[in-house]
């Protein structure tokens, strides 16, 4: 229960911080910009060793936001370098996040087959 509460708190705070960035930046930030920023930022923080403590503290509160996707990419790359050397640098990130990407493709396709977009109200 405590874990879930911590995930709620930290995850919520990350979203709140991003919302403030969106609302307070004078230029328009699109969904694409925000997601790219989070993944890249998460990867860099992770490489510097600053993201892992947050994951230890918040669990899913740090891995569910897209910065956690970046964390998984960076950790995957570094772990693979340990195992396979230079080739690991190329394969590690994709390997570590393959499940997420593949499910997105599968469900994206399935949902497109099953449903039509609905008009906005």
């Amino acid at each position: 229960m405590e874990q879930i509460g911590m995930a709620f708190l930290i995850g919520g705070l990350i979203c709140l911080a991003v919302q403030l960035v969106i609302d307070l930046t004078p230029v328009t930030l699109t969904a694409g910009h925000v997601m790219v920023g989070l993944v890249t930022g998460g990867a860099v923080l992770s490489a510097l060793g600053w993201y892992e403590p947050l994951v230890q503290l918040a669990g899913a509160g740090a891995t569910v936001p897209l910065s956690g996707f970046g964390h998984a990419l960076a950790q995957g790359a570094m772990r693979s370098v340990d195992e396979r050397g230079l080739l690991g640098a190329l394969s590690g990130g994709i390997e570590a996040t393959a499940v997420g990407v593949a499910t997105a493709v599968i469900f994206g396709y399935t949902m497109a087959v099953l449903f039509d977009p609905k008009p906005k109200r």
């Binding site: 699109t30 977009p117 008009p119 906005k120």
Partner: peptide, 18 residues
């Protein structure tokens, strides 16, 4: 038409944007 303009000028209609 709202939906034709959204998908051409902005984003897919089902995208959760503010």
């Amino acid at each position: 038409h709202h939906e034709t303009a959204e998908r051409q000028f902005r984003s897919p209609n089902e995208l959760g944007v503010q």
